[in-house]
């Protein structure tokens, strides 16, 4: 999008947010039917992070994602049918149904990979930014990671190196308040966004319930990276309404806290920005898209034991 626009049209935003939300809800239904091999980590409630950040990106920009990466993939433009097929273990999936939810990648749209290793994308995004810089491209790398990853050594290494080389990278810490089954108060010391200051580049905290705020902050960080002025650490304060995995009873969650987040749900608010008829049309469009994706995936052959890689 043009550099002077910081947020897409409301209908586009709602469409993207709803796609993220409904994609995961539909996949969860398939999981409960026993059709999804492997674990499934949902990010319900966090939609505004991926949608807001990726609104600032071009197709040729690259991202690294996480084990909780469906939103990032969808927001960066991954193909819904191939994602659904991969999650359902079908040969028409991104890697022929062999890898499932945690290993979706599509370099054609700049998605270098989701990742089964917490913090594993930090060095890779840093390396991608280095590669873009060496080639003189004005594309940027965005690294999505959770606040749990800030406790890894990769976090310190990547921030230091990105600062030293003024790399075109945006570190997006998606603070969803939980690392697996443990609240962040148990594993994060201090404030994540403030750690950038020690390395000499901007750290910004933004409300992850407000997709416009996320988009605006991302736009600024991406523009800085594109201009060759180096990295930004963006801490998006969001909330994971789902458990760590589908089936996790999430007894560690404070129900009042979760309800407070539901009450200001970014998807619901984005819908309220539209006329009812426009919103209803988008609802139908997404339902048709997802129902078709499931139908096509289930009609495709299952992953083939002869195609181990």
């Amino acid at each position: 999008m043009p550099d002077d626009v910081t947020s897409p049209p409301p209908a586009d935003l709602y469409r993207r947010l709803l796609l993220c939300r409904r994609f995961e809800e539909v996949v969860a239904e398939q999981y409960r039917e026993g059709r999804v091999p492997g674990p499934l980590h949902l990010a319900l409630g966090q939609e505004a992070t991926a949608v807001g950040v990726c609104a600032a990106l071009r197709r040729t920009d690259v991202i690294t994602s996480t084990h909780r990466g469906h939103h990032h993939c969808l927001a960066k433009g991954a193909d819904v049918d191939r994602m659904m097929a991969e999650l359902l273990g079908r040969r028409t999936g991104y890697s022929a149904g062999r890898n499932g939810s945690m290993h979706i990648a599509d370099p054609d749209v700049g998605l270098l990979g989701t990742n089964g290793i917490v913090g594993g994308g930090l060095p890779i995004a840093t390396g991608a930014a280095f590669g873009l810089q060496v080639q003189g491209r004005d594309d940027v790398a965005v690294c999505f990671f959770g606040e749990g990853a800030t406790a890894t050594g990769n976090f310190g290494e990547a921030l230091n190196l990105a600062a030293l080389w003024a790399l075109p990278v945006v570190f997006v810490c998606e603070n969803n308040r939980f690392a697996e089954l443990t609240p962040s108060s148990t594993h994060v010391a201090g404030e994540v966004w403030q750690r950038a200051e020690a390395y000499g580049f901007p750290g910004v905290r933004v409300d992850g319930g407000d997709v416009h705020a996320v988009a605006a902050a991302s736009h600024e960080a991406v523009a800085r990276a594109r201009a060759g002025d180096g990295p930004t650490l963006l801490e998006v304060m969001t909330y994971r309404l789902s458990g760590h995995y589908v089936g996790d009873p999430a007894e560690y969650r404070d129900e009042a806290e979760a309800q407070a987040w539901r009450d200001r749900d970014a998807v619901v608010r984005a819908r309220a920005d539209l006329a009812e008829t426009d919103a209803a049309a988008i609802d139908d469009e997404i339902e048709t898209l997802l129902a078709g994706a499931v139908e096509r995936a289930l009609a495709a052959p299952a992953a083939d034991p002869e195609e181990l890689g």
Binding site: L122, P123, I124, T126, A128, G131, Q135, A141, N154, E157
Partner: peptide, 20 residues
């Protein structure tokens, strides 16, 4: 580079992924 072996290896992974 700094003494950051994981990220040194990651520099290679990411840079190779974008065409180097």
């Amino acid at each position: 580079t700094p003494i950051s072996e994981a990220t040194i290896a990651g520099l290679g992974v990411g840079a190779a992924a974008v065409g180097l």
